[in-house]
Design a protein around this nucleic acid. Structure first.
Lengths: 345, 345
DNA sequence: GTCATTATTCAAAGCGCTTTGAAAAATGAG
DNA sequence: CTCATTTTTCAAAGCGCTTTGAATAATGAC
């Protein structure tokens, strides 16, 4: 079988204690010995068995991500890869690995309990929080370190989070459209129970209200943010008696569908109808090269993943410390999808 | 601290042996005892510590995925989420978890060695193989069970794989375009060193050759399959003296860019210029609802993930067995993006 | 050269589980 | 009621590491 600590120490004529200490950088070992040990370890390609090490230290050096299987689109979704990419960047820096557990939606709670009981992870990241997300209370109760990507309206107890200022960014986007003269502004949002969707709607409504513009519920659509959804809703709204002159979309993917519907209707985006989308700055779906295709509220989800991961590691290393939080501001980038509201409409 | 086997067995007045056996379904324990143990375990929410269990059994119940950090777009890419979603579905069925390790590109080899030496995983999945991928030899040498998603041209030793018949599907797509009267057919492919890109090109070339159509190298473009890339290359080609009348794209994402460029040029897709794309059948990026947007070679990458995972588990459970393989045929779905070649062009 | 310090090294216990080999309990044939 | 068999349970070893408390070696003051 492969080399282990016992064999390595026999090979060196040293005790396991000394070899272990040498490799883990403890001060009570002679520099010359440490060097000798190090070289032998390299030579034999020795790596401590992670399970044995974890058992002895009580630390798994592993971060858990729990993926409910039903919420296919919101989780196994376009941002997933980039978010995970950012997070894993941070994990790698601190020597952590990441683990995914897939669960049936109704067993998500027990999945967390199990993760803790099995001592499989040192902490978890909670993705895609809904309004009043019950998982937060559960995790607090369990005492398992966690950080939420997003927030959960309605939850009163403390928790650590990293979130984009969704309300502010959609408020700004809406104001911008109003300034351009738009009055009939549609919102193509993500699933209503998702917290981010709620906040974006709040921002949208708050801007309309501040400018005294009536809210038309038929201009507000919400569902999973697929391309098809964006297309479908836009086509539908363009057939209305008084169609919107501007559309606010919650993701680039749905915005692409919006664009498709606009063009199918023989209209031109940015002239006949304006579009602003949220842009997660995905690596494979850049918003154009020099000039952005869409005017957008931009915030890198990859960066967010990195920050979330770093915060979690911080919390794992300093348990008992008060919850942390970090608000990220989205930037409003101007593209070619917006223009003055057409006259006489 | 939390409950463990020792405490549980004390609680029950039984030995650890019996409790362990009862929970693991061994036959040499009285049914009444098993029931009593089971109930107590449930009551206390007992779960065996996975690291201790792994140490004792020598099995990690964990599958590894190694993600090279440079290949951002090809790995942290749109299909990543769906592929992983499918795989995790299969893992869950067999009680495995999945683990991701992020590595610097130049340390990928040592990452595998380390994974093995640390005994952190029972097997790994190799994603995104290039032509002559050196990782295959490495993994064979290490004796770590693995399955490749895709194949690697040039590698002569045996290995298990699951792949789409990329050559055949692009051959068919090209033939289809030729049948429609197209003669200047462009190929907007993925990175050249990727094996799938190579095979698709082969299929494309083979169809052209079979019909005696000259190959124009200026119509063949290859790079990371982003939206921007599809757009850029298409715009570029449309400005040629003799622009293509049809375009073959390697992914929906680039096809969306292709479409954007076509429309920006004032042309209509399906009439002025035909497009066929490969469609991974992503959950958030369906190719239209009833009528597909694009004529496409379709093959679910989610399904592929599931098959790959299942094959890997099979190999883990039966080591030493001859390599397995599975070829998936893509289906050619007809959408609105293709039509007869325009006359006089 | 001696003895108190300090620097190194070591043996053994412990992390929480599985599993081997042995012991105890139950069963049944006679 | 015995004694051989079969069931059921148990004590202890082992998985590969870290870490405690003790032992040994090196150092330096006198």
């Amino acid at each position: 079988m492969s080399i282990n600590l016992k064999k390595l120490s026999e090979e060196l004529g040293l005790s396991q204690t000394t070899v272990s200490r040498a490799l883990n950088g403890y001060p009570e070992v002679k520099e010359a010995t440490r060097l000798r040990v190090q070289q032998a370890a390299d030579k034999f390609g020795y790596r401590p068995n992670s399970r044995a090490k974890g058992l002895a230290t009580g630390r798994a050096m592993m971060i858990g991500h729990v993926i409910p299987s039903s919420t296919q689109h919101e989780m196994v979704n376009p941002v997933f890869g980039d978010f995970v990419g950012g997070a894993s960047e941070a994990y790698a820096r601190y020597g952590y690995d990441m683990m995914f557990t897939r669960v049936q939606d109704d067993t998500e709670e027990s999945a967390y309990r199990e993760l803790l009981a099995k001592r499989a992870v040192d902490g978890v990241i909670l993705q895609g929080p809904s309004v009043n997300d019950p998982r937060i209370h559960l995790l607090n109760e369990l005492g398992l370190p966690f950080v939420v990507h997003g927030r959960s309206t309605g939850v009163t107890e403390g928790y650590s989070w990293v979130d984009v200022n969704n309300k502010r960014s959609f408020e700004r986007a809406t104001e911008f459209l109003i300034d351009l003269g738009h009055r009939r502004i549609a919102l193509i949002n993500g699933l209503e129970q998702m917290d981010f969707a709620q906040r974006r709607r709040d921002g949208y409504l708050s801007a309309l209200k501040a400018r005294g513009i009536d809210v038309d519920p038929s201009l507000m659509r919400a569902d999973e943010m697929t391309e098809v959804f964006g297309h479908h809703q836009t086509r539908d709204m363009l057939r209305m008696e008084k169609p919107p002159t501007a559309i606010l979309a919650s993701s680039m993917i749905s915005a692409i569908g919006v664009r498709r519907a606009i063009e199918e209707a023989g209209l031109t985006m940015g002239r006949d109808i304006s579009v602003i989308t949220h842009d997660d700055d995905l690596s494979y779906l850049k918003n154009g090269q020099d000039v952005p295709i869409f005017t957008a509220t931009r915030s890198s989800v990859r960066k967010a993943g990195e920050i979330v991961a770093e915060m979690l590691i911080e919390r794992i290393h300093n348990p008992g410390q008060a919850p942390l939080s970090r608000m990220l501001e989205a930037e409003l980038v101007l593209g070619r999808s917006t223009g003055p509201a057409p006259q006489g409409k």
